[in-house]
Design a protein around this nucleic acid. Structure first.
Lengths: 260, 260
DNA sequence: CGCCACCTTGAGGACCATCAACATGTGTGG
DNA sequence: CCACACATGTTGATGGTCCTCAAGGTGGCG
């Protein structure tokens, strides 16, 4: 009982009038949500909607031509890079409504791999369409810029996390982030389902799998969350947030501070 | 004998016909370099050129309205964030030709601070202008996207560095990167001049100042570089690159490898 | 000259990666 | 339905890397 009902929308044929943006159930999340009716129509006409994707299927590989942007309609995706020395680095996970594939438009060739962890579907926006759209509606370009900017912002957060935080704080932030994004995608806020392995998480956060395991058990022992395979329930979000912010549980938040 | 000659171009008046993009000495580095003559003209007319900046002067602060993009014309800049707990995080350094200020267009308010480390100058592109320009020339939008995409790509590199590398490897990569970018900006490749303190570097790379110091001395003792205050000369770039790639000096690069 | 910011050097210990072994779950074929 | 293999996850012991604290050195600028 995963997201099959979404896929079936597109199953029978490729006519799929009903998969256009205006009636998309993900519209509130999509970058298209701010567009006016006529702009939305133009946008929708240029998008390839709801292409189904199977688990482990790759949307693109490093070296592939960079000719379109992707938006998650359903499912969970991960992107990663392969470095010269053979090291693999998981650069991100992608939930419904989020943009993917903006890894290196610069030289027209992807630098990342992008693959599905789940059954899912994506919408595709050809790069060539953007230029056209820009002429029709400048606001859309601005919206695209905003989406990209948000991505940049999130990556700076990630840099802070990777550079400055201890293992526990990293994981706490990861969980909260995932929880928030799941919630934005319409799922329950405190019940997270992973599609990724702990190795994926560890790799992404720059730590060892064993450390993930230990910290997770530690949080469970403190009664902050419950674990069941890849399902986690946050039973004490406040405490987890305290760890995410300060690296440990703060007794009572002070309000006075002789700050600089 | 820093970059004063550039500033003097703009000193006398603000008429400054000669500070337009078409004759800018930084043009080869700027995102404007791919534009056709007529597009370039339209672009140039909307840009505020070569605004001079004094050391420590802030171009914007977190909370300021996000209404323009900046391009370094001369000098060195650093951007940083202030986190809830009071922690400061240096998010990047910016050399001539590079774009700055795309930290959070999303909600129209900056999330970073951006300030000059040196005397310098910047060009400003009002956001409102982008929308106009898009209608004139779709290619410019694409160019902007490419610039942004390059930024995203660089940040992913940074995530890898912060998450996966040891201290020595981090610093080696930082030096090489700085060297390359200095070179791109027209300076000598193996003679780097810092405008930033070691504390800034340490903060940026997620390490302690003491570690920076120690590793730098270590590299000096190995004869890989020479240090003079904030001037560093790379005397054995190959060795430094080896450290940057593998975390240590590799004896002889193998060419045969039973890879997967 | 003396202050202050910046940098260096040393000693000790925390944190977490690593190695190793085991547990649990999942899928496959008999 | 069971047996087996493989992937994934847990748990424990050990050591290295690098942060922290502390003290001293250096240069710039009033």
């Amino acid at each position: 009982m995963r997201n099959n009902q979404i896929l079936t929308l597109n199953k029978g044929s490729s006519i799929a009038q009903d998969t256009g943006c205006s009636q998309c159930m993900r519209k509130p999340l999509c970058m298209a949500h701010t567009l006016e009716d006529n702009s939305l129509h133009a946008f929708s006409a240029l998008v390839n909607h709801a292409r189904p994707v199977k688990p482990k299927q790759a949307l693109f590989r490093a070296g592939d031509r960079f000719d379109r942007l992707y938006f998650v309609r359903a499912g969970l995706f991960k992107s990663y890079r392969l470095h010269e020395d053979g090291a693999l680095h998981v650069t991100g996970f992608h939930l419904p409504g989020e943009m993917m594939g903006l890894d290196n438009m610069n030289n027209g060739v992807h630098s990342e791999y992008l693959e599905a962890l789940d059954t899912g579907s994506v919408c595709e926006l050809p790069l060539a369409a953007i230029e056209k759209l820009a002429r029709v509606d400048g606001a859309l370009v601005m919206q695209l810029m905003r989406t990209v900017s948000a991505e940049v912002s999130r990556e700076k957060d990630m840099m802070y996390l990777l550079g400055k935080m201890g293992a526990k704080q990293k994981l706490a932030n990861f969980l909260i982030d995932l929880s928030d994004r799941s919630y934005t995608s319409g799922l329950h806020r405190n019940k997270i389902h992973f599609g990724m392995t702990r190795a994926d998480i560890a790799n992404h956060l720059g730590m060892a799998v064993e450390t993930i395991s230990r910290i997770l058990q530690g949080l469970r022992d403190q009664g902050i969350l419950t674990i069941n395979h890849r399902d986690i329930e946050l039973t004490h979000r406040d405490l987890l947030e305290s760890i995410a912010k300060h690296g440990s549980i703060m007794p009572i938040p002070h309000r006075d501070r002789a700050s600089a």
